[in-house]
Amino acid sequence: MMRMTVLASGSKGNSTVISSSRTRVLVDAGLSCRELLRRMALAGEDPSTLDAILITHEHQDHIAGLGVLARRLRIPVFFTEPTHRAWVRMLTPRTTMSYAKWLDHVQREKEARAQSVASTPAHDPAVEAASIAHISAEAAALDATLNPTAVIAVDEDAEDPDAALCDPETPQAARQKADPTHLPAVEYFHAGANFCIGDIAITPFTIPHDAADPCGFVFESEGIRMALATDLGYMPPNVKAALKRIDVLLLESNHDLEMLKDGPYPWSVKQRVLSRVGHLSNHATAEFLQKDYDGTAAWIVLGHLSESNNAPELARLAAEQALANHPTLLGNRILLADQATPLEPICL
């Protein structure tokens, strides 16, 4: 038997448990540790039986509770190496300064140099070397100020006020607090290369999304195949090929095109969502189901629905209309994954 339990799906957090009779894997940890444990309890999933955490990509709605949960459960985390490196960079504090502070810093440096030059004979090599060093320091400060990747710092306790529930105060936990990137164990995989966790065979495939190395997955055990494909801007050939002969399919249906265009997001965000590294619309998902889907899934779960730019009824209607054009596919059952509550487990 295999089981898929969607704990949460949406822009505020994503997490799904994939289980065989002997192995349990948590795919993404996009909620706080406390909330993930609460969702698992609601869904009848025992967190102590999890064997690993598997990460699709490093965006916050997929990794928010990762470090705390992995340390709490003392289980390995599976990433691609670029995704792991991106996650570490996100959690590594960098010093920066505002533009006003930088201007003040430059002015003070100029005044100090002027005083130094006034009190030192002309053409003193030491003064010239010091001047060059000051200019280099100013350039580095400006670079740090303008580099958006240099200002990301995450306080796990601030994000999860109940972190103590998940990270008991022990000498080890205290050491880990100083290093939020610490994990009990890390395993790397590569898109396109099969690997196993316990008795679950996993095929990761590259997806088009604006992350370091985003992946979707096909899980297979005991003759059952389940797939997870969300956070993709369009359906490239490799994804279409990966989603063949699937028994349970979790597929993105993020937004309604008209709701997104008329919605509250800034134009820059709308462009990002609509881009080829953004998210699938209801229309794009329906087009895949109508033209490229092979019809083998007993269940299709529509996930990552936008709360601002979609309505569950619209996502369901688009998918049902796509399947209605193929009478042989009408046996496919459609479910909608929710942001606020876990779905009932799907067992095959």
Results as ranks from 00 to 15, higher is better:
Val68Asp: 09
Glu45Thr: 05
Glu169Ala: 13
Met97Ser: 09
Ala174Pro: 00
Val218Ile: 09
Ser136Phe: 10
Ala100Glu: 10
Asp231Tyr: 10
His304Glu: 15
Val239Phe: 01
Asp256Arg: 08
Ile334His: 02
Arg245Asp: 15
Thr149Val: 11
Gln290Leu: 14
Leu260Asn: 08
Gly331Lys: 11
Thr328Leu: 05
Leu31Ser: 06
Leu260Cys: 09
Gly30Asp: 12
Thr149Arg: 12
Thr230Asn: 06
Pro168Asn: 03
Gln176Met: 05
Asp160Lys: 03
Ile246Gln: 01
Pro161Ile: 14
Leu323Arg: 06
Val27Asn: 00
Ala41Cys: 08
Ala114Ile: 07
Ala340Lys: 10
Tyr188Thr: 08
Lys110Trp: 03
Leu335Val: 07
Arg276Cys: 06
Asp231Thr: 03
Ala193Asn: 06
Asp292Phe: 12
Ala297Gly: 06
Ile300Arg: 01
Pro342Trp: 04
Met259Lys: 13
Glu159Gly: 13
His123Arg: 09
Pro327Lys: 02
Val68Phe: 00
Ala137Phe: 08
Leu37Arg: 14
Ser275Ile: 12
Thr95Cys: 03
Gly192Asp: 02
Ser136Cys: 13
Phe219Lys: 02
Gln339Thr: 09
Thr145Ser: 01
Ala140Thr: 15
His62Cys: 08
Thr341Trp: 03
Ala318Asp: 11
Ile75Glu: 05
Glu128His: 07
Asp104Gly: 07
Val277Phe: 01
Thr92Trp: 04
Trp299Lys: 13
Ala191Gly: 11
Arg3Trp: 00
Ser131Gly: 11
Asn282Cys: 14
Ala144Thr: 13
Thr203Asp: 07
Val154Lys: 11
Val6Ile: 15
Ala286Asp: 03
Met97Leu: 11
Ala126Gly: 10
Val27Phe: 08
Ser11Tyr: 08
Glu138Thr: 15
Leu280Glu: 04
Ile200Asn: 02
His283Asn: 05
His182Leu: 09
Thr170Phe: 04
Gly67Met: 08
Ser48Asp: 13
Leu260Met: 11
Asp292Glu: 15
Arg89His: 10
Ala41Ile: 05
Asp338Arg: 10
Trp102Leu: 14
Arg175Glu: 15
Thr203Phe: 05
Val218Asp: 00
Gly278Asn: 08
Asp157His: 12
Leu228Ile: 13
Ala144Gly: 11
Val17Glu: 03
Ala229Ser: 14
Asp143Val: 13
Ala29His: 04
Ala284Asp: 15
Thr120Ile: 02
Lys101Leu: 09
Arg94Thr: 09
Ser15Trp: 04
Gly44Cys: 09
Gly192Leu: 04
Leu336Ile: 15
Thr49Ile: 01
His283Ile: 05
